[in-house]
Design a protein around this nucleic acid. Structure first.
Lengths: 129, 129, 129, 129
DNA sequence: GTGGTCTAGACCACG
DNA sequence: GTGGTCTAGACCACC
């Protein structure tokens, strides 16, 4: 796997795990229907607790990124990730708000901010790493 | 004060407080040199413990938003907030990354995302709420 | 632990704690990667409140002396303490200035002062106390 | 007067005042027998509270730097500042210790440290500002 | 009256 | 069991 964790970060490991897997999907390294390692094997691969991987998987399942079958294991949702809906849009706006408020305070212009976003977007639209 | 907290939120109160005050500065409701309520009065106003307010203030002080005088109380940094530097830019990019990864997965296009940002930006550039 | 506090001192306990731990690192009693007691166990060991220890640890973390892992506890920074930079030098000079001014007034010569410093330095370069 | 205060410093104003006056004596800007402004006039000159100046003066008096006559006002001790004694030496060593411990941790060598001290000493041995 | 420090005790997130 | 957060209430230094 391509998972890279920072065990010293203040960000909980299970959140980092979620982010890494979502990035993998965004970058098309993980395609709909692809299977993911089992909780057990992933946990041992990256050296974290079973519960931690489990928590990340559960959250990803609830958000529609993956399916967890008791026998077949874990797969990326074959039907793709649920599309953006209104509640997503609201949540996103709410989450971005503090970052933009800070940017305004620090004199970081709208153009610069958007440039930053575009650059990150471009990371995801290229193929491969 | 204009502070509005969601005590049910998973987001710690002191973080919400920071965000609210940063928004106040971004919206020019709070100008450089303006004084903020004392720890105790703000705490009693919004119905939280004095230490919670104190924690928010200390963090804001460290980030350069406010100054804390031992006796005179708390004021918005008269010299303005420190400008965006490289470490800020890096941190911002790192923070935005997961949101953009999720947006990509959900088919939320770059244009839509930027539109969302612009709308939030416009909130801060108008006067008043 | 080797921590020795003076509860009667005007110096806040959390500052004394910081100093003691920094001395421990300076004397190589604590090596990079060594783990420190948990907040709670140290607090109970030395008979102070958990928050007092926490405050000392947070400050030491911010100054780069230690790392705080959410679960694994507290360790001395495995990469060593950040080296002296210009801002450190300036701060040191600013802090020493009043002591030297007083020494000048009291007829304590430069040679005597330096001798005092050297003697303290020698405390840290030997092994053990 | 040559007093320069930083009202935003965490260091109490009365301590800053003491330091400035001690520096003045160390630099021979204030000579034994010279008179200092009254509490009232100094307070109004530098824009601080009467109590603050009073506290600084009282402490300076107790340390032997100045004399306070009810009528004649405040003068620099005509007999000079009490010479360094053992208790002074011990206190100095105790105060310097944390700075040296930090220096050791940061790889600031004894030579560099002494160089820093010498430079500060040289500030005081020149005449005038 | 202000912020700074300390105590005591509670609940939660994390692994 | 670990640190993170929050509350409640106390005393002190400062001005």
């Amino acid at each position: 796997m391509f998972i890279q964790l920072d065990l010293e970060s203040a960000e909980p490991i299970y959140i980092q795990l979620q982010h890494q897997i979502i990035e993998g999907i965004a970058k098309k390294k993980l395609l709909p229907g692809d299977s993911l390692p089992s909780v057990r094997s992933l946990a041992s691969d990256i050296g974290v607790n079973l519960h931690t991987v489990n928590k990340a998987y559960k959250q990803l399942k609830q958000d529609g990124y993956i399916l967890i079958h008791r026998q077949k294991g874990v797969v990326v949702n074959p039907e793709g990730v649920p599309k953006a809906d209104n509640s997503y849009r609201e949540l996103l706006a709410k989450n971005l708000r503090p970052y933009i408020a800070e940017a305004v305070c620090r004199g970081f212009t709208e153009e610069e901010f958007i440039q930053t976003c575009k650059q990150i977007y471009s990371n995801f639209n290229e193929r491969g790493e």
